[in-house]
Design a protein around this nucleic acid. Structure first.
Length: 334
DNA sequence: AACATCCTCAACCGCAAAAAT
DNA sequence: GATTTTTGCGGTTGAGGATGT
């Protein structure tokens, strides 16, 4: 990991707009900085990131604040290891979208593009490479299609899709965009996420609207006993950016709680981070903390029939022109 | 136990597009 | 319309932990 850099150099990658005389920190974020940023975001919501950096009293450029918030502090992040289903989905989406990590991340709620990118580069890429270089991946071996990631047998449809990808290990939109494909539903339909996204199952519960709920915990941020994450409540926090609701036309309203409630919640998270000052230990994540504190997390869900939307045949040319046509979870702030 | 190598992932950089002035 | 600023993205780096020898 990078060491915190107090040299105060002003970099030239978009951070130069800040007061040039200010000494900007770089490197790892301290718990104190996290606290300042979280507190500011709770009180003011997301605005101009340069203002955030300035007004929150952080010696950071706006870009750094944005990255920290999006990749680490945002309360709706889902931490922990990727599930096999998520792995599969990432592979499927990557076969379609290439290295468009933000587009892929947009369809994996709670995951960040950085996280997915890291996961791809460190894990999936390697596994696929091993598979493709293995003699068992010869055509004859395809008689028994096998999941490259998990080693389990795949459905023929999934296998077909994997084949599409494996034949284009460096596949990108340009590599795939020249024709209309009959895409295997099972493999490509991002709606087949049920095992991955328990939040989608909310639909069957009749809960409407998109929420992310954190129940209040004790003001001192102390540890409550027990572990209890479920998916039935509601709430929200500051705006999740990078989602274009107008474009997608999707629904999902966020309901705001009182600032005091949110502050309590976030203090808990901050305290947790301070207790676990080792930034590398990502298993000690915010979600775990929320669970430890008896904090309930409410997921996102779709209204109406949108979730049931079936997509059997896609025109990849159209798809690549506007990947936002994929169904995906998002929400907006009221 | 000591050293080397591998692996993970937070955070940086540079660029391009969008928005603001 | 030109210029500046901000935002967002993908590629890359490198510290530090894990694993192997």
């Amino acid at each position: 990991m990078r060491k915190p850099d107090n040299s105060g150099r002003v970099n030239s990658s978009g951070c130069a707009a800040i007061n040039v005389t200010a000494k900007l920190r770089k490197g790892l974020w301290s718990p104190e900085e996290d606290e300042k940023l979280v507190n500011y975001m709770i009180r003011n919501g997301q605005g101009c990131w340069s203002d955030v950096a300035r007004n929150a009293g952080l010696q950071r450029c706006g870009k750094s604040c944005r990255l920290r918030w999006i990749n680490y502090l945002r309360p709706d992040l889902k931490r922990g290891a990727f599930s096999p289903q998520e792995e599969d989905l990432i592979i499927h989406l990557h076969s379609l979208l290439g290295n468009r990590w933000s587009q892929i991340a947009a369809r994996l709620p709670g995951r960040t593009d950085n996280e997915i990118k890291n996961f791809w580069n460190s894990t999936i890429k390697k596994r696929l490479k091993n598979i493709s270089s293995s003699p068992n991946t010869s055509d004859s071996s395809m008689d028994q299609p096998r999941d490259g990631i998990n080693g389990r047998l795949r459905s023929n449809q999934e296998h077909n899709m994997m084949g599409l990808y494996m034949n284009n290990p460096s596949s990108s939109s340009s590599a795939l965009s020249s024709s209309t494909w009959q895409l295997p539903n099972m493999a490509l339909n991002p709606m087949n996420l049920d095992p991955i996204l328990p939040i989608l199952d909310q639909q069957s519960t009749g809960i409407v609207g998109s929420y992310f709920d954190v129940q209040p915990c004790n003001a001192q941020g102390g540890i409550f006993g027990g572990s209890n994450i479920d998916f039935e409540g509601q709430f929200l926090v500051p705006p999740l950016e990078s989602v274009n609701n107008e474009q997608s036309g999707k629904v999902g309203n966020l309901v705001e709680k009182s600032t005091a409630d949110v502050m309590n919640n976030m203090n808990s998270i901050i305290n947790y981070n301070q207790c676990n000052n080792n930034n590398n230990n990502n298993n000690n994540n915010i979600n775990n903390k929320l669970a430890e504190n008896n904090v309930r997390i409410e997921g996102l869900c779709w209204e109406g029939d949108e979730l049931r939307m079936a997509m059997g045949e896609w025109d990849l040319e159209e798809l690549m022109k506007d990947v936002s046509s994929f169904p995906f979870l998002d929400f907006q702030v009221e």
